[in-house]
């Protein structure tokens, strides 16, 4: 059984249909990429999976590990193992990175009926992981995303992912706003998290991210549907020809 199973997923935003029948199946340990032109529904798909309000599912099903994801609230999905690395991480004034991470970890432990995490051990663990991603102690002491550069924000997202150890990671345009050096650090961070039990959905507009994070499968999303599925070579094809073919096919 696939770790994530999406069947005939339809969703609307403000009553407007955006996703028009998505079928997608991601095996445990696999990395899938979703590529597509602007407005194709890429970000909508990520929000629907994470359970954001205002993104209404009108048809279809999503199962994670056999569990009905659409029945769950946003926080329940996170606890169940869904993680969305956001394109535009949100500022939380006054909330330090360390506090935020601890709250998130403790929310999981609470759901599992465990005690709160030992503060000292946690601090050590986070610092070790932060170091590999170039997240400084100073960043962990500052308010989440407040005054962070684009690269700092994305590194911080990947750090959260590393600490929370989700089963299913969605990376929404993680490459946007990154220079080549930052892209490298972030990609290495993501690659280090690839494992047999963890799957990823990498959403991107450009091929360049996929030369750093090599996917097992690539899907082309256009006009709310998956238009084509293939291997790595599909990315190169898109890089050469653009999305014009698919936009036409969809129209």
């Amino acid at each position: 059984m696939a770790l994530l199973e999406i069947k005939n997923l339809h969703a609307t935003v403000d009553g407007k249909p955006i996703l028009k029948g998505i079928d997608l199946s991601v095996e445990a340990g696999q990395v899938h990429a979703i590529m597509g032109p602007n407005g194709s529904g890429k970000s909508t798909l990520s929000y629907v999976l994470a359970g954001r309000e205002g993104y209404e599912v009108t048809e279809g099903s999503v199962r994670l590990d056999g569990r009905d994801l659409l029945e769950m609230e946003t926080d329940e999905r996170a606890v169940a193992g869904v993680f969305l690395a956001m394109q535009y991480p949100v500022e939380l004034p006054g909330v330090t990175g360390m506090t935020f991470l601890r709250e998130a970890v403790n929310a999981r432990r609470k759901a599992a009926g465990e005690d709160e995490i030992d503060a000292m051990g946690f601090l050590k663990m986070v610092r070790a992981k932060a170091k590999t991603l170039g997240v400084t102690d100073d960043m962990l002491k500052r308010a989440v995303n407040v005054g962070f550069s684009g690269g700092e924000k994305k590194r911080n997202e990947i750090l959260q992912m590393a600490v929370l150890e989700p089963k299913f990671c969605i990376l929404d345009e993680t490459d946007s706003g990154l220079d080549i050096d930052a892209l490298k650090v972030v990609s290495e961070g993501v690659n280090a998290l690839r494992s047999a039990g963890r799957s990823m959905l990498v959403i991107t507009h450009y091929q360049r991210l996929l030369s750093h994070i090599e996917p097992d499968v690539i899907h082309v999303l256009a006009n709310g549907r998956i238009q084509k599925t293939g291997g790595k070579e599909l990315a190169l094809e898109l890089e050469k020809n653009g999305y014009a073919d698919f936009a036409e096919a969809a129209a």
Partner: peptide, 24 residues
């Protein structure tokens, strides 16, 4: 709503998310 969603997508309940944001 962005802040609430961000916190909840990391596993915080609505109550804890509001608490965290207000405290910040």
């Amino acid at each position: 709503e962005d802040q609430l969603f961000y916190c909840m997508s990391r596993g915080l309940s609505t109550e804890d998310a509001v608490g965290l944001i207000v405290n910040g």
